Amino acid sequence: MLCERLGHVVAETAAPYRPDDVARTSGVLMGADLVAQIDARLALLGRPLADDDIEPFTRVLYDTNRALPAADVSRALRRAQEIGWRVGAAFAAYDVLLTPTLAWPTPRLGVLDTADPESVYRHASVYSAFTSVHNVTGTPAMSVPFGHDSAGLPLGVQFAAPLGGEGTLLAPAAQLERAAPWGSPPGL
């Protein structure tokens, strides 16, 4: 593995969270924030939402989450904190967590088309199982291009660090870029 050849100790560990739990939690929090952001923008503009202001999928999320009960948001905030504690505890044993960026191979064109909200609902959280946890917990993470799959589609790896550890992420990404410039065959 390239990371080991670069001097890193690599160990496998189980994810400290359940992706479905993260998806539910992030759905509530992102939905509530989406409504707040759109409403703030509309207040600035002094007008109601027009049909062509946002993409169809964003409109579905906006309409769905406008009536989100405050108790649901409060529960999601508590759950995000609990997930964050578990993710944070993983950094007691590891400086950096390394995962694929996507949990599944690159989706075929149209699978995540925001003009088809149902398709996005069905597939988005499956693909983002490794990335969304960092959006929910606030832990820094970065995706780094790393080669291509057998169909020639791009692959990425994700590095994550504990809260405040943004600087920790830059060193391994820079090492990878020097050792395997973007576009070269993977070999982590």
Results as ranks from 00 to 15, higher is better:
V157A: 01
W104V: 04
A93Y: 06
R122L: 14
A161V: 03
D51G: 12
L98E: 01
M1A: 11
A93V: 13
V10S: 00
R178H: 13
P105Y: 07
L45A: 15
E82K: 15
N135H: 11
D21I: 10
T99L: 03
A180P: 02
M142T: 06
F57D: 00
T131K: 04
A15W: 03
L68N: 04
A71K: 11
R75Y: 12
N65K: 00
G152W: 02
V73N: 07
A141F: 00
A129M: 02
E118C: 08
G138K: 02
V136N: 07
Q158W: 00
D21T: 12
A40F: 09
L98M: 05
D116C: 09
P100R: 03
P181T: 01
D116L: 11
V136D: 06
Y17N: 08
L163M: 12
R59I: 00
G46S: 09
G165E: 07
P19C: 11
D63Y: 09
A115H: 12
L6F: 03
G110A: 02
G84V: 04
V111L: 15
G110N: 00
R79T: 15
P48A: 13
A160N: 01
D116K: 06
A141Y: 04
A124F: 14
E82C: 13
A50R: 15
L2R: 06
R75E: 15
M1Q: 09
N135C: 12
P19T: 10
A115K: 07
T168S: 10
I54D: 07
G31H: 08
A92S: 13
R18E: 15
D72V: 11
F146C: 07
R66D: 10
A151C: 07
E166S: 03
P100Y: 01
S132E: 11
P185M: 08
V133E: 11
G110F: 02
D95Q: 13
R78V: 07
T25H: 03
A67Y: 06
V10I: 13
P69H: 06
P19I: 09
G152K: 01
D113P: 05
E177N: 10
R5A: 05
T13F: 06
T99A: 00
L188D: 05
L102A: 05
G88R: 01
P69F: 01
T58W: 01
P145C: 00
Y121C: 12
L98F: 04
A36N: 09
D149H: 03
R178D: 11
I38L: 13
G152H: 05
A171K: 15
P69T: 04
A92I: 10
A32G: 14
Q81V: 10
L170Y: 07
A80Q: 03
P19F: 03
A141C: 02
T64K: 14
P16Y: 15
G31E: 06
A71N: 12
E55N: 00
T13C: 12
A43V: 08
L155C: 06
R47M: 09
L68D: 01
P162A: 07
H123T: 03
T137Y: 09
D149L: 01
R66A: 11
L163F: 14
Y62T: 02
A171N: 14
V120D: 08
D51F: 05
D149Q: 01
R18F: 07
T99I: 02
E166W: 12
A80R: 08
L102I: 00
G152Q: 06
P117I: 03
A36D: 13
D20I: 12
